[in-house]
Simulated scan of single mutants.
Amino acid sequence: MTDAPDTPPARRNASSSLRRALGILMYLAEDRGHPHGVTLTDLAEGLGMSKSTVLRLVAPLRDVRLVDQDPESGRYRLGPQNALLGQAYL
């Protein structure tokens, strides 16, 4: 099936939520001098997002253990599932 001549092609890879969630993972993966993780404020300010947006995007990442949150400090860091992804890549 092809697009009609006057119809613009469908945008590919336009999922801004997915891109922002991946940005959270990349932010956590980079060495930022926070060996114990980063705060919600760190994430929001570092990524230029509101805290509510970060919380919304982090929730599914936490569900699948790509992001962990320290129960005492509330700081976020990469979760153990990232090791599985890395191992699968290698």
Rank of each mutant, 00 (worst) to 15 (best):
T2M: 07
Y27Q: 07
A88Y: 15
M1W: 09
R20L: 14
L55I: 10
R32H: 11
M1Y: 11
E45H: 07
Y76Q: 02
L90Y: 13
H34N: 12
H36S: 14
Q87R: 14
G33Y: 07
T2R: 07
L47C: 05
L61D: 00
E72Y: 09
N82M: 15
R20I: 01
G37D: 11
R12M: 03
A88G: 14
S52W: 07
D3S: 05
D42I: 04
L55A: 12
H34V: 03
T53P: 06
P9H: 06
R77F: 07
S16E: 15
E45N: 11
A4T: 07
T53Q: 08
T39P: 01
L61H: 00
P8Q: 02
L90T: 14
N13G: 14
D68T: 12
L18S: 05
L90E: 15
N13P: 09
P71W: 04
M26F: 11
M26R: 12
L57P: 03
D70F: 00
L78A: 06
T41V: 13
D63C: 05
H34L: 09
V58W: 01
S50T: 14
R19L: 15
L43T: 00
D3T: 01
H36F: 14
L43H: 01
V64N: 05
G74I: 02
G37N: 13
L40K: 05
E45A: 11
E45V: 05
D3A: 04
Q87T: 13
R65H: 13
R11M: 04
A83T: 09
V54I: 12
S16R: 14
Y27W: 07
Q87H: 15
S50Q: 14
P71R: 04
L18F: 11
S52H: 08
L47H: 01
T7C: 11
A10G: 03
G74Y: 01
K51D: 09
